[in-house]
Design a protein around this nucleic acid. Structure first.
Lengths: 346, 346
DNA sequence: TTTAATGATGTAATCGTTTGCGCAATATAG
DNA sequence: CTATATTGCGCAAACGATTACATCATTAAA
C-alpha cells in the first residue's frame, strides 16, 4: 500500500508545486509563511504519511535533541525512577532519552560515554559507577563543552552540576530515630569505597551518636559490598564474634534485608531485640516482615532537578558557567523494623 | 585547551594533506588504503580528539544504529531485565538502545512510537500496554517496512515477530505444584483485560485443575488490576464473602504479596492453611516471609531472543518475511509459600 | 615495449533539513 | 504618487560522512 521509500519534504513540495524550503518553514510554523500555505502543507504531509527525519535536522542544526543517561543499572528502582523524573521534563521539551547502563564497570562506563558522544547526544546525565575513581572520560566531555549533570553518585573532582540527596541528614535522622526508640548499640553497615554517599552516611551516623552522647565504636562499623548476601554475612559475623549490638543502620536496604533474614532465622526478634533501618526505600522494604524502616531518596524529584539543571546548562553561556550543586532533603520512612512499643534495652 | 568546534574528518584530512574520503576509508579500515596512511590517520585522529559523527553517517547510510524499545515501565524488574538482554546483543553489534516508557497509557504509547520513528531508529522492540487494543500505530510501523519485534505483551492481530514465555505452561506447573502439595480449592487472581498473558495463564490454571480431577469454580476466579493493593482487597473480599479456598494462584507477584500480607494479618498461616504462588519472580519474592513461590519469566534470555529476531529481520528480505513466534519455557521457582511438609487439607 | 591489471587516492554527489539572502509583489506612510 | 516596509516564497549552501566512479602510478603479463 505504501511506497517503500519514506516521504521527504521534497515530495511534499513537488506535490504542491512549491519548494522544500517553504515546506520546511510551513511545518515549523515560520511567521513568514501564509496560513493558507501552512494548511496545504500540513494536509499534504498527512496524505503522504510524512515523518520528519530528525537525523537530517540534527545534522543541520548540530543538535540531536537526545540526552544520554548513564546509570550503573536500570534494574534498580532508584535509578529507574530518576530516569522517569528526567523523562518527565525532557519529553515536555521534545527531547528523547538514551539510557545506557555501565554495570558498575569502569571500562564499560568509558565506552558508554564515548558511544553517547558519537551518537551526538546534546548532553549527558549520569551517576558514576562504584569503581570509578578516574574521571578523564568525564573531563573530555566537559572540555568539549558538552553539558554534563551528575546525580547521586558524584565526585568532587569535577567542576560540574550535581544533584544529590543529603545523605548526611538521612543517616542522621535514621540513627536519631533508632536512639529515640531506645537502641544505643547501633552497628553501621557501609561500603569501603570512598564514594560520597557512603562517607556522608557514615558522617551522619557518627554525628548522631555524638550528639546523643553515645560513644563511637569502631567495632560496630561493618564494611561490605552491601548486597543481600553481604548483609547476611555481616550479621552472621557480628553474632559469631559476639559483638554487642542492639540495632543496625545499614547504608543499603539490601544489606539490611540480609541482616533481617539472618536475625529472624536465629530467633532474634526484630524490632524487639534488635532494630533495623536501611537506606534507599526499595519497594520490597514495605513487603518484609517486619517492614523495613528506610530513607526515601526522592528519586523522581531528583530526576526532575537533574533535567532542569541540564536544560539550564544547555541554554547557558559556557563562558560564565558556575557549577551548581543541588541538595535534596531525603525522607525518613518509619516502619516496623525500628519501632518498639516499649523502650526496653536488652 | 580544546577548540570549541568538534573535529571532523576534514580537519584530519587537511592536517595530513589528503582528502576526507581517504580519511573516511582509513578509519573504516578500507582494504584499498595503505597501512601507512591508516596509521597516520589514526594518529592524527587521536591528536585532534576526533569523535565520529554518527548523525552524519546515519543520514548518509540511512541507518541510525539505534533500536527503539518501548516498555510500559522500566521500573519493573522484568522489563529492565529484558532490556538488559536486548542490550547485550545490540552492543555487540554496535547498536545503541533508546528506551521509552509508555506508562500503560495508549496515547503516550502512540506518541512514543512516533517519536522513535522520527528519531529514525532502525527498528522497534516493544511490549504493548495493558490498555492498548487498537494497533494502527504499529501497523504504520510495519507498512513502512521498519523491523518490529514484540515481547511478552503481544497481540495476535499483527503479523509480526514475537517472543513470549509459555504462560500456559507456567500457570499449569504452578497449579499442579499446588495440587501436589495438597491444595485443592485454588483461587486464581487474574486481570479482566484480554491480553494474551492473562488469558493463557487462566487457561493453564483451568487445564491443570481439569487434568487433576478438580472441578472449576467460577467463584474462585478473582479479577482485579493485580497491584499490591488489589491483592489485599481480593484476599479480604474472599474472606469476607466466606469463599472456601486453601490456595491462591496469582497472575502477579504483587497481588500475591498483597494477599499474603492480609492472610498473615488475619492469623491465617501460609503455607500451612493457605498456599500461595505468584507469577513473575520479582526480586522481592525471595525476601518475604514465607518466601513466595513464583514463575520466572527468563527475562534476560527473552531480551536476547528478541534482539536476535530483530537483527534477523533487519537483514532479511522484507518481501519474503514470515513472522516468527518464539516461545520460551518459564521456570517454576518453588519457595516457602506453597510447600507444606505434611499434606493436611484444612 | 605495449597492454592490462592492480593499488592508492581524489572528485563529487548524496542523505533530508534548515536558513541567510534575495527578489518580487503588495501594503503603508508621507 | 513616490518611498519604504512588509509579506511570501525560492535559491543555494551548509551539516559531516560515505561511496561509485574517475584518475594516476606502478607493476605484472604478453
Amino acid at each position: 500500500m505504501n511506497k517503500r521509500k519514506k516521504a521527504t519534504i521534497h515530495d511534499i513540495a513537488s506535490k504542491l508545486g512549491i519548494t522544500a524550503s517553504t515546506v520546511s518553514r510551513a511545518l515549523n510554523n515560520h511567521p513568514r509563511i501564509s496560513d493558507a500555505t501552512k494548511k496545504l502543507v500540513q494536509k499534504a504531509a498527512k496524505e503522504v504519511n510524512y515523518q520528519p527525519n530528525n537525523i537530517a535536522a540534527a545534522l543541520r542544526n548540530g543538535k540531536s535533541k537526545l540526552i544520554g543517561i548513564v546509570v550503573p543499572t536500570a534494574n534498580r528502582n532508584f535509578f529507574s525512577s530518576v530516569v522517569r523524573g528526567i523523562e518527565e521534563i525532557a519529553n515536555q521539551l521534545n527531547y528523547k532519552v538514551i539510557i545506557s547502563q555501565s554495570y558498575e564497570n569502569f571500562e564499560k562506563e568509558k565506552q558508554t560515554v564515548d558511544a553517547l558522544l558519537s551518537a551526538r547526544v546534546d548532553g549527558i546525565i549520569m551517576s558514576i559507577g562504584k569503581n570509578t575513581d578516574d574521571f578523564e572520560h568525564l573531563e573530555r566531555v566537559l572540555e568539549k563543552g558538552i553539558p554534563l549533570v551528575l546525580f547521586d553518585r558524584i565526585t568532587e573532582e569535577l567542576e560540574v552540576n550535581q544533584v544529590v540527596i543529603d545523605d548526611y541528614i538521612g543517616a542522621y535522622k535514621s540513627v536519631e530515630h533508632l536512639i529515640e526508640n531506645g537502641y544505643s548499640k547501633i552497628a553501621h553497615f557501609t561500603n569501603p569505597r570512598k564514594i560520597n554517599i557512603y562517607s556522608e552516611r557514615l558522617r551522619g551516623y557518627t554525628d548522631a551518636l555524638k550528639d546523643n552522647g553515645i560513644k563511637f565504636d569502631q567495632d560496630l562499623i561493618i564494611e561490605s559490598n552491601m548486597q543481600l548476601e553481604d548483609g547476611q554475612q555481616s550479621a552472621l559475623k557480628m553474632l559469631e564474634d559476639g559483638i554487642d549490638f542492639d540495632a543496625i543502620f545499614s547504608s543499603s536496604d539490601y544489606a539490611a534485608m540480609g541482616a533481617l533474614q539472618v536475625l529472624k532465622d536465629k530467633g532474634i526478634s526484630v524490632p524487639e531485640e534488635v532494630g533495623i533501618a536501611g537506606f534507599g526505600n526499595e519497594p520490597f522494604t514495605s513487603f518484609t516482615t517486619p517492614s523495613l524502616t528506610s530513607v526515601d531518596q526522592v528519586s523522581i524529584p531528583m530526576g526532575n532537578v537533574a533535567a532542569e539543571l541540564f536544560f539550564e546548562l544547555l541554554k547557558a553561556d559556557p563562558k560564565k558557567f558556575i557549577p551548581q550543586k543541588t541538595v535534596l532533603k531525603p525522607e525518613l520512612i518509619i516502619r516496623g523494623s525500628s519501632t518498639r512499643k516499649i523502650t526496653q534495652p536488652i
